[in-house]
Design a protein around this nucleic acid. Sequence first.
DNA 1: GCAACTTTGTGCGTGCCTTCACAAGCGACT
DNA 2: AGTCGCTTGTGAAGGCACGCACAAAGTTGC
Lengths: 249, 249
Amino acid sequence: MTKPPQAGSEDAAAASLRSIPEASVARLAVYLRMLGELAEQGSETVSSDELAAATGVNPAKLRKDLSYIGSYGIRGVGYEIAALVRQLERTLGLDHLQAVALVGVGNLGHALAGYSGFGGRGFPVTALFDVDPDLVGIHINGIIVEHVRSIPEICAERGVTIGMIATPGPAAQGVCDLLVGSGVRCILNFAPVVLQVPPEVEVRKVDLAVELQILAFHVARKHLAGQDTATLDSRVNGHAANGSGGMLP
Amino acid sequence: MTKPPQAGSEDAAAASLRSIPEASVARLAVYLRMLGELAEQGSETVSSDELAAATGVNPAKLRKDLSYIGSYGIRGVGYEIAALVRQLERTLGLDHLQAVALVGVGNLGHALAGYSGFGGRGFPVTALFDVDPDLVGIHINGIIVEHVRSIPEICAERGVTIGMIATPGPAAQGVCDLLVGSGVRCILNFAPVVLQVPPEVEVRKVDLAVELQILAFHVARKHLAGQDTATLDSRVNGHAANGSGGMLP
DNA sequence: GCAACTTTGTGCGTGCCTTCACAAGCGACT
DNA sequence: AGTCGCTTGTGAAGGCACGCACAAAGTTGC
């Protein structure tokens, strides 16, 4: 159905990589985590209904999402968890480690550097950078903080593929340029600015203040609505998770 | 155009509160921040083109977003920044402070508690909770960490409207139930679980591991694509920011 | 006071994503 | 071996959001 008529797809994974809707990719990551938990609990298979209920999505949507990466379900039974996990990991590029560089070891940056969920999930934080002389040289989780000016050499040396920017807003664009210049093509940006990047670079933004403001909007709406809350909600709702996840302090 | 035929809208703000697309709400918060910066630089007005360029969105989309909250632009001139900021703040519910409770003062929680961007933007962190006896009782930014079991009284007492959950995954649902039981109707969830809540409660999820996995997918895609990167990118791109923002460590 | 320019506000076409609903397929039970 | 029940995979429809392009409206200059 989504099979492109061109190119004699040499590989299921390769075929899947083209044209998976971005929204689906975000959910695939959520499915993957839930599948991991199910596997730990000893389950061998899951039905789309079970997995959908556990992850809070529509069962049909889940099946369509999984269909983008190929047919790994057994009709009448469900999905074999182990096989599905393996395929999801391949699709999401988790079959080889992705070295992550983190720039900005301040308040949030420190928390990110110490977050065990990254390394455990295939994202070893491999390099730390800052400009503050008091921070450069210290060790966090066994990694030494380097000066931002060393980004090019160190990123190249350690094969960094993903950059995280947790600097103050004004510094972010400069840092971003350095990362891009070092060959980093994917960036997770926590700074409250819109980064300018060449088209081949993918930027995702996590903006905590904006998240709170969105919630504040809903507070205001619920307040205004008064007792009519339920009616209004059922009209405006329809999504809650935006896809991002896993902070175990 | 978007004027609902029912209800004799008593108020512009009230009218705007119904049926603003969620995607627009997220962008309104971004516009608001950028307008704040422009105001600091001494600007009095902005055109939609300028503001759109600064925030990385399509000018038409920006105008449509702003049209949801009313007509505050002057044709031939642009938008008067001060008036627009005021109206945006009203719409987003920032005209009165929103007391925020933060549960889980571990790695990330600590960083969030110390993040100055919240209080400065109308979101004073008013209460901190944890279960760890080593943490209960300590002060962070002048706020004492209370035990999770005190959530009901303290939230009621301090008028908490927004809850942030930064606990380990397994603890999140229990904490969520406590918050909801205390009257909190909006929750920002950093724990890697899907929270079950009654329909009148709004949950937004920030999942850092998922963000990285989405980026990893793009790394894999770019790798697979080889030199064809540019072509592929222009086909698959179309959004980069997901709307969230403001971490100044 | 008029004309030309600038910028907003929005109707409309387009494409993506979601959701429903159902046929095809697989296992279990008899 | 056949039938029944369950679950996947997907065609098709609906809804939402995006972006274009243009008319309305206001300003500036003469």
